[in-house]
Amino acid sequence: MTTTAIEIAPNSALLVIDVQKGFDEESFWGPRNNPAAEDNIAALMDAWQAAGRPVVLVRHASVQPGSVLAADHPGHAFKDLVEKRSEGALVVTKTVNSAFYGTPDLADWLTAQGIGQLVLVGIQTNMCVETTARMAGNLGYDVLVPLDATHTFDLAGPAGLALTADELATATAVNLQGGGFARVTTTADLLTA
C-alpha cells in the first residue's frame, strides 16, 4: 500500500494493543477477519525485541458488566503469543479506546524515552488501534499501522446498517492514511525496512 520506503527509527516503539484472550470468544464478538493477525504480531514483536527496540503492551480492562475483557475475567489476560514475548515491555492498562488514556501515562513515557515513531498492531482494527493511531497522529508522532497485524469483527450500527470486519478494516485504512493520521503498511514492509 505504501509507495515510499519506510525507515524505522532505532527507538521506534511497537504498541501491541489489546491482544487478549477475551477476543477469542467468538460467541461474544461475532465473526472476525484476518486470521494471520496473530502470526504477524508475533513476527513484529520478535523483530522489535531482536533489534532492541521498545515494546509497549496495552491491555484493556473493561468496566462494562459482563465483558470478557474485565479485569476479573480470564479473557483479560494477554494471549500466549504476547505473554511469552512480554519480558522487558512496558504494560499500559486502559479502560477506554485510546492507549493514551491509560496507566502509566503513555505520552509521558514516550517523551521520557525520546520516542517519536510508533508502530501500532493489535485488536480491534477500527476501535482501539484506530483511536490510538488518530490520537498519536494528533500528538505529532510518526505513526505506522501494518493493517495485516490487526483484526476486528463484524459490527452493526444504527438503523440496520452493518459492516463486515473486512469493510471496517478498509475504512480504518482510508481514515488513517487518507486523514493524515498514520501511514498504513504491511508486516512484510516493516520487517524488510
Rank of each mutant, 00 (worst) to 15 (best):
M1E: 10
T3V: 08
T4A: 13
I6H: 04
E7M: 05
I8E: 01
P10K: 10
L14S: 04
D18N: 11
V19S: 03
Q20P: 09
K21Y: 04
E25R: 13
F28N: 03
W29C: 15
G30Q: 09
R32C: 07
N34D: 05
A36M: 09
E38R: 13
I41H: 05
I41A: 06
A42V: 12
L44S: 06
M45V: 12
A47F: 08
W48E: 10
W48G: 00
W48A: 01
Q49K: 15
A50W: 02
A50E: 15
A50P: 03
G52F: 11
G52P: 15
R53S: 05
V55W: 02
V56K: 06
V58S: 03
H60V: 03
H60L: 08
H60G: 02
A61F: 05
S62I: 01
V63D: 12
V63W: 02
Q64H: 11
P65E: 05
P65C: 02
G66K: 01
L69E: 07
L69C: 11
L69N: 07
A70R: 14
A71V: 10
G75P: 10
F78S: 04
L81T: 09
L81K: 08
E83K: 15
K84I: 14
K84Q: 14
R85K: 01
G88R: 14
A89Q: 00
A89P: 04
A89T: 03
L90C: 02
T93Y: 09
T95G: 05
N97G: 15
S98H: 03
S98K: 07
Y101A: 12
G102S: 01
G102V: 02
T103C: 07
T103I: 10
P104C: 04
P104S: 09
D105G: 00
L110C: 14
Q113L: 02
Q113C: 06
Q113A: 14
I115C: 01
G116D: 11
V119A: 10
L120S: 08
L120M: 13
G122A: 09
G122R: 05
I123D: 00
N126E: 14
C128E: 13
V129A: 06
V129Y: 08
A133K: 09
R134C: 09
G137C: 03
G137M: 01
D148V: 10
D148N: 12
A149W: 08
A149C: 11
T150L: 07
H151S: 06
T152P: 05
F153Y: 10
D154T: 07
D154I: 03
L155Q: 15
P158F: 03
A162R: 13
L163W: 14
T164G: 15
T164S: 12
T164L: 12
L168R: 13
A169R: 11
A173L: 09
Q177L: 02
Q177N: 10
V184N: 04
T185L: 12
A188G: 01
L190Q: 04
T192N: 13
A193F: 09
